[in-house]
Design a protein around this nucleic acid. Structure first.
Length: 477
DNA sequence: ACGCTAGACCATGCCCGCAG
DNA sequence: CTGCGGGCATGGTCTAGCGT
């Protein structure tokens, strides 16, 4: 660790830093930087300068960049590499050099800069920001995160294979940017604009103006992000990746699942928070539930069943609590994954049974039943069920017919004799639509059901006849 | 097509009773 | 007291239905 009192430091490091930032013509950043150098260490100053270079030039991990950095280190006689600076020094430097941090933040959120940069860039900036925001990371943790983020870089490449390359990469980097800064990526803000707005000397009211500019940019991002579903998908998955590695297939599956949802508010929790893998809700079918109930009745313990079926013990308890309901229910279609608990299930079960009987009957007759006809039949049966669902006393068909006839007569009478026919017609149409339609449909359904019943009776009768006739033939033989 | 809502139900965490 | 089995309350997720 070198002391700042080293008389040669100021001039040498200033030159180096100016050299480093010359490419981007951001000399002004030195002025910000200078405020922090007075009592800090050489290593810290150099480290911050290195970060500045990384942020501005993009990819520190390239061999060429590393060589330049080593050269710079050699020239000022510092042994410290940029990854080896002390966290205490960095914290101090960052807290003192708030303007510098703002600059780094602004530059690092620029899409051109980040887009050309590496994950390592973000890692280092993240390190800066973590220290600045009060979440200092232990060195080992920092390195572990760096390792993970580099692995995440591989994930970026995978994503690029399944999505638009630049888009996906920017999305991931944007997500990483969120994670690094707790602030979003300003993806449409070019580097030159950043430098123009933020790279000039920051003094007095101008600083305030620039702060407002940053806030405006943040607001701009807020508008952009709401339209970007993929951002949240990749963001969330990157968070998961940073916590617990997830398989690529699993991730794409999650992406498909989450694309259906609206964009959720970008999370801004501290970067050290690790996310658990997204849980997947399993659906236990009626068949499986029945198996569970039967095994339990045979003496199998709840805990064993839970282990066997890979569910929580309380889930088994819940199933057992609903034992009667589950056992009473049935799926007319063997092998069909009839989802238990679906609120439509109970309504549909009866309909399924009737439908199965009907289809079986047609199969026995050698008919091939088209899907459309099956669906139509299902609708009919379902309608009949709904009528019973109401729980009211069924209205006799004759009463409905009489009622409808009376209504038609009433309409006819009013139309003939009322002075304001237009108004009456309008009111009559509304009433007919809202009240009378129900009874007309009810009558129609019953007529269909009667036809079906007749059909079943005829079928059953013909089958019975067939059986009897074949039996008599057997007897004769 | 999309968003909202209600209902169903699995997952989680906490609590209680019981046996050793 | 401790560990285990089971129940209960609550939250999260999914799906169907409905309105716009």
């Amino acid at each position: 660790m070198h002391d700042v009192c080293n008389p040669s430091f100021s001039e040498v490091s200033r030159n180096i830093i100016l050299e480093l930032i010359a490419e981007r013509k951001a000399e002004c950043s030195w002025r910000h930087f200078r405020r922090a150098k007075a009592s800090t260490t050489c290593e810290t100053v150099f480290a911050v300068a290195s970060v500045l270079r990384i942020v501005m030039l993009g990819n520190v991990m390239a061999d060429e960049e590393s060589a330049q950095l080593s050269s710079a280190v050699a020239r000022v006689g510092l042994r410290a590499a940029f990854l080896d600076f002390s966290i205490g020094d960095l914290e101090w430097a960052v807290s003192e050099a708030d303007l510098f941090v703002r600059l780094v933040k602004a530059l690092a959120t620029d899409s051109d800069c980040i887009g050309n940069g590496s994950i390592a860039t973000l890692t280092l900036v993240r390190y800066l920001m973590a220290a600045h925001d009060g979440f200092p990371l232990a060195r080992n943790e920092f390195r572990e995160r760096k390792r993970r983020l580099e692995a995440a870089n591989g994930l970026v490449n995978d994503l690029c294979q399944v999505a638009d390359e630049r888009r996906a990469k920017l999305d991931v980097i944007g997500a990483l940017s969120c994670e690094c800064f707790g602030a979003p990526l300003l993806e449409h803000f070019s580097l030159s604009e950043s430098l123009c707005k933020l790279g000039t000397p920051c003094q007095g009211g101008e600083l305030k103006q620039r702060t407002l500019c940053l806030q405006a940019l943040a607001a701009r991002w807020e508008r952009v992000k709401k339209k970007e579903v993929e951002h949240s998908v990749i963001w969330k998955n990157l968070r998961k990746f940073d916590g617990v590695p997830i398989e690529y297939d699993r991730m794409t599956q999650l992406m498909e699942s989450q694309k259906r949802k609206a964009f959720q508010v970008c999370e801004t929790s501290p970067p050290s928070v690790e996310m658990a893998p997204k849980k997947v809700r399993k659906v236990i079918t009626i068949q499986v539930k029945k198996e569970i109930i039967q095994k339990n009745e045979a003496g199998c313990r709840v805990i064993d069943l839970a282990q066997e079926y890979g569910v929580r013990h309380s889930t088994i308890s819940t199933i057992l609590a609903q034992k009667e309901k589950i056992m009473a229910s049935s799926s007319a279609f063997k092998g069909v994954a009839c989802v238990s608990g679906n609120r439509r299930a109970s309504i549909n079960e009866e309909m399924e049974k009737l439908l199965a009987i009907w289809i079986n009957d047609r199969h026995l007759k050698g008919d091939i039943t088209p899907t459309g006809i099956i669906m139509e039949k299902a609708r009919d049966l379902s309608s009949a069920d709904e009528e019973e669902e109401e729980g009211r006393q069924p209205i006799p068909t004759t009463v409905i017919k009489k009622f409808l006839k009376n209504w038609e007569e009433l309409q006819e009478f009013v139309n003939k004799n009322h002075p304001e026919q237009a108004e009456v017609n309008r009111a009559g149409d509304i009433y007919s639509e809202t009240a009378m339609r129900h009874f007309r449909q009810l009558l129609k359904k019953r007529q269909r059901q009667t036809t079906l019943d007749n059909f079943f009776q005829v079928s059953a009768f013909s089958k019975q006849q067939k059986i009897e006739s074949s039996g008599s033939v057997d007897q004769l033989e």
